[in-house]
Every structure is written in structure tokens, then in C-alpha cells.
Measured scan of single mutants.
Amino acid sequence: MEVVDPQQLGMFTEGELMSVGMDTFIHRIDSTEVIYQPRRKRAKLIGKYLMGDLLGEGSYGKVKEVLDSETLCRRAVKILKKKKLRRIPNGEANVKKEIQLLRRLRHKNVIQLVDVLYNEEKQKMYMVMEYCVCGMQEMLDSVPEKRFPVCQAHGYFCQLIDGLEYLHSQGIVHKDIKPGNLLLTTGGTLKISDLGVAEALHPFAADDTCRTSQGSPAFQPPEIANGLDTFSGFKVDIWSAGVTLYNITTGLYPFEGDNIYKLFENIGKGSYAIPGDCGPPLSDLLKGMLEYEPAKRFSIRQIRQHSWFRKKHPPAEAPVPIPPSPDTKDRWRSMTVVPYLEDLHGADEDEDLFDIEDDIIYTQDFTVPGQVPEEEASHNGQRRGLPKAVCMNGTEAAQLSTKSRAEGRAPNPARKACSASSKIRRLSACKQQ
């Protein structure tokens, strides 16, 4: 084909351009004929944790799935940006308080904090938690009735009371019990989460009196709706648990309003109706937990002794299953770290194939690490110290990083047969305790 000078094309009309061969290198194709290559998922490591896909996002930050490269346990990490926390009232204080509380709590029905990582340079905090497959609110939203069968609701409620009793025994008032803060594992274990607005009572406090509340409006008791200066913290949790039980068994809320002012007005009056299909035992329990006067409201001991709580409820309806993943529609909620794991395991070791967030990740503290002497050669063979940054567990980050890069360049065919977990650990520049 004859090559045409581009400067001469402006002298031709459209018809003349076609005659000189423009149609031979300008093609129009339908979008259905285009085959897009999927974007390669680059592996990203935060300390010893391999990052997966997004699980959810809230006002405080994002939650992603991660894999512990040492234990191969599935975890969830809450990623918090200090810049964003400053824009939220009491944001930083709530996060630090939640970390302090979770560090000393150990119960099967309370979410466990596994690790805390802090990135000084990017001003990011990573709260590594045990993995929960789904939230209770997500399960309720997945069915038209917006409720659980009585047998399933009873099982979840009993676990909620177990976890709540443990928190109260530790002198902690949750203040925000609701389905949105109750998570579930694949085995059906309920976990109380989000202790950001919780309050730890003084060890020598005479009672459970509280003065502040930041919980969700629909789950607040009349004493808070009416603006009382002080109130019983434990009875606030009992009320919120009662509203939660009402919601998961009926699909409704005892109090509603077009806006928060109308909602608080209705809560302050204390008038509500219980659907007739709840039955006398459940209705009596709800009335005891939603008692207007805090002094007359049920205690956890009274809830445990109630006939509806103690009764064994046979399954009359099919239980609400864990819904498919909202993004991938995966009904099994498979591990989202698998594509990243395959990338590390299947590809040659190259620095361009993975990302390490930083050479140094500070753990379990908000301060910069200490310094240790770096050896410097002298005339008599002895070495003197220069400062060298280290990880919180004493690992020399720069030395590990250099060693990792040197190993990656060394030709050794046997290394390709290593397991995925050992490869992740070798790529991680800074081991965590």
C-alpha cells in the first residue's frame, strides 16, 4: 500500500481520502468484538498479612480480608486513616479506646483483636480482627420478611446475652447493641463488635452510672431520649438488646419516626405494640426488656430465667442462610486472597510482582521504634555504632529488605517449588510478632 504524507491529507475531501486508502487503516468495530484482558491483581503485604478484597466500608474506614502468612488464618483488617478520623467527632479517641478494650477481652461471643499495625509515614492504622463471614443486618436484609425464624432468632439472642453478660462482668457498657454490630462466623457463632462508643466503668465505681451516649437513635432507651444527665449503663444495653430481639423476630421496630426528633419523642413516651403472632412468652420477655422505668427493666439474670429464653424451640421454618457475597455473588464466600496468593505462588519472584506497604510497620504502639547501633568497621576489626531503624520486634528492616532482594536475584530452581506461605513470609520485609 502506498504511504501517504499526513501533511497532504488536509487537502483532500472525505471521498478523496477514502480513495487514497484511509479506509485501510481506520476501522470501526462493535464493542462486543473487544476482548478485555482482566487487570492483574497485584499482591500487597502489610507486615506478614497478605491483603485481599474489600469486605465493607463504614464511617471510620474500610475493612478488607487478609491472610496471615505465618498461621494461614483468615483475618479481617480495619484500615483507618488518621486524616479521616480527625474529621469525625471523637474519632481518634474512640478508636484508641476500642483498641484498649479489645486487647483485654477474651470471649467467644466478643470479636477478638489479633494485631494492631501502624504506618507512621502514611498515617494509617490497621486493626487486624478475627474473620466473620457476614453481619446479622446483612442476613436480615437478604430476606423479604426482614426477620429470622424463632428457632434461629433464639439461638442468636442467647449468644448475644452470653457476650453481653461477659462485657458487663468486665465493667464495660457497649451502648450500641444492634444487628449491624453483631457479626457471624461460618459456624454460626455470634460476635459482638464495634466497641468504639463503649465505656469502661471505673474499677471502684459504686454502680453503672453513665453520662454520655453515642449509640444508634432507634435503639436508645427513654432515659436517653428524654435527655437525662445520668442513667444506668447496663440497663441501656438491656433495652438495646430488647429492641434487637423485637427486630429479628418481627422484622419491625418498636419505635419509629420520620426524623430523629419524632423518633425520640415516640421513644420518650414509651408506647409501642407487640405483634400478636409473637406469642405470650416472647411478648412477656419483650415487655420486661423494654420496660420504661430502668429500675423495673429486666436484668440479665431475669432474662436467663425467663421461660422463652430457657425453652427449646424446634425449627418450624427453614433458617435464613448466609447470603452470597454482594460484589462477586459467591454463595460460598470464598477467600478473596486466592488470586493474590496464586500471583505470588505461580509467578517468578520479581520485585515488580508484589507490593510491600512499607519497609517498617510499627505494631502494638503509636510511637516510632527505637534505634540500635549499626556496626561500623574500624582499624582493629571492631565496629562502632551508628543508628539503624528496627521493627518493634527488633528485626532490622533494611537488612531483611536487602537480603530479600538478593535472594530474589539468585538463580535457584529449587526455590520455585516452595509453598505459597513460605514465599509470602520471604517477601515480607518486616516480620511481626
Rank of each mutant, 00 (worst) to 15 (best):
6 P>V: 12
10 G>I: 15
12 F>L: 09
18 M>S: 10
31 S>G: 14
36 Y>T: 06
38 P>A: 06
39 R>G: 06
47 G>R: 10
49 Y>V: 05
49 Y>H: 07
51 M>A: 12
51 M>H: 15
56 G>C: 02
56 G>A: 04
57 E>F: 04
57 E>K: 07
59 S>A: 08
63 V>R: 00
65 E>V: 03
66 V>G: 04
72 L>R: 02
77 V>I: 11
79 I>S: 04
80 L>H: 04
82 K>C: 09
88 I>C: 06
91 G>R: 06
93 A>H: 15
94 N>H: 10
95 V>F: 05
96 K>G: 10
98 E>W: 01
100 Q>A: 03
100 Q>I: 15
100 Q>T: 10
103 R>I: 06
111 I>D: 14
117 L>K: 10
118 Y>H: 07
122 K>V: 04
123 Q>D: 05
124 K>H: 10
125 M>K: 06
133 V>P: 13
136 M>N: 00
137 Q>R: 03
141 D>T: 00
149 P>E: 13
150 V>P: 06
157 F>G: 00
157 F>M: 02
162 D>C: 09
163 G>P: 00
163 G>R: 01
173 V>G: 07
174 H>P: 01
175 K>I: 03
177 I>H: 00
181 N>V: 00
183 L>D: 01
187 G>A: 07
187 G>W: 15
188 G>M: 00
199 E>R: 15
202 H>E: 12
208 D>M: 15
208 D>T: 06
208 D>I: 10
209 T>I: 03
210 C>K: 10
211 R>E: 13
220 Q>V: 05
222 P>T: 02
224 I>W: 10
224 I>N: 12
226 N>V: 04
227 G>S: 12
232 S>W: 03
240 S>R: 04
242 G>R: 00
244 T>K: 02
245 L>K: 02
246 Y>I: 07
248 I>V: 04
251 G>Y: 01
260 I>G: 07
260 I>V: 06
265 E>C: 15
269 K>I: 09
270 G>R: 11
272 Y>P: 11
272 Y>L: 03
274 I>W: 01
280 P>F: 06
281 P>M: 10
282 L>H: 03
284 D>C: 02
288 G>H: 15
289 M>R: 00
290 L>S: 00
291 E>T: 08
293 E>M: 06
305 Q>S: 05
314 P>T: 13
314 P>W: 14
314 P>M: 15
316 A>P: 03
335 M>T: 12
336 T>R: 13
337 V>P: 14
337 V>K: 13
345 H>I: 12
352 D>K: 13
354 F>K: 14
357 E>A: 07
359 D>C: 07
362 Y>A: 11
364 Q>M: 04
364 Q>Y: 13
365 D>G: 14
366 F>E: 14
367 T>K: 02
368 V>P: 12
371 Q>D: 11
373 P>A: 07
374 E>A: 05
376 E>T: 13
377 A>M: 13
379 H>T: 10
380 N>A: 13
380 N>R: 14
381 G>M: 14
382 Q>R: 12
384 R>L: 12
390 V>F: 08
391 C>W: 04
391 C>S: 03
392 M>A: 14
392 M>N: 03
393 N>H: 13
400 L>F: 12
400 L>S: 06
400 L>N: 15
404 S>Y: 05
409 R>W: 11
410 A>V: 10
411 P>R: 05
413 P>E: 14
419 S>G: 14
420 A>R: 13
421 S>E: 14
421 S>N: 14
422 S>C: 12
424 I>N: 12
426 R>V: 15
427 L>E: 13
428 S>W: 15
